[in-house]
Amino acid sequence: MQPTPAVEVHDLSYSYGDRRALDGFSLSVPAGSVFGLLGPNGSGKSTFVTMLAAMAPPASGSLSAFGQPPHSALRARIGTVFQENASDPMMTVSELLRLAGRLFGVPRAALEPRIRELLAQFGLSDRAGELTGNLSGGMRRRLEMCRALLHNPELLLLDEPTTGVDPDERRALWDALLRRDTGQRTVVLATNDLAEADAVCDLVAFIQAGRVIATGTPAALKQGLRHESVRVGWESPTAEQLRMVAEWAGGSEVTRDGGFVRITVDDASTFVPRLFTLAPGAIRSVTIEKASLEDAYFRHVTRRGDAMAGMP
């Protein structure tokens, strides 16, 4: 028997004026999973998180968390880390958490021990008396996580929780979260960081222009890609050159990524020398990696401004 989904969404739509932020958005998030929403800026991830947090009603379609439509009481079961910090720089860390605890209905007797537990879990115990405005960017994000987990929510919504956080802080944050949380609560992670999503998500959905365009486990989404990913620093490749590269035996996905061309191939060692022959002097750099979620992402999501007409 399939476990009950924590979140179910069918044909959801939402607009800001004339701009459609969500347009026929559908997905299902299994209970207890870490579910990644991946898409470019403006693809509708944050709008979806806002609606799931019951802070904006759907214009059309249906949205439910734990089988219920979003409403204010449901917010007691949801914790949200927003893209921007949600704190007051003039409040101390413990003042902020106490206020959050009272707003989210944490019983008084349980509040102080819970604050101490979370501050220890996220490495902020020695900052309890400090003004939140004096914390570093990474510490503020960890404080956001403490605040969102304070009422022990069944559903945790993370909207780009590690934006602006250095790699050490990022690792500390995820270690602290996943060490205690595996399988115990449902996590919905909206992010642009594909490597992060690849590392922590059980399932991911690629989102573009307010729609889910692909969903599955990171492994399933990477299936069908060639084994190696070649990132080529290539000055002004012509459409004809890129078409030729795509047609070479062994090459499959060819996408533009800013000043780079990304190609997935079966065997980079035979493929790369042909590039230098094709475009002598124009290849600045070549990086070879195992095919990643990023390659799967670029196979599904068209990059803004440099979509390649006619490419496979």
């Binding site: 802070m55 204010s72 927003f82 910090n85 007051d88 720089p89 409040m91 959050a100 707003l103």
Partner: peptide, 17 residues
């Protein structure tokens, strides 16, 4: 000030009306 500092988001994401 609450809106600009971001704490209003925390208030509005709470179960309180």
């Amino acid at each position: 000030r609450d809106r600009d500092s971001g704490i209003l988001r925390m208030f509005l994401s709470s179960p309180q009306s």
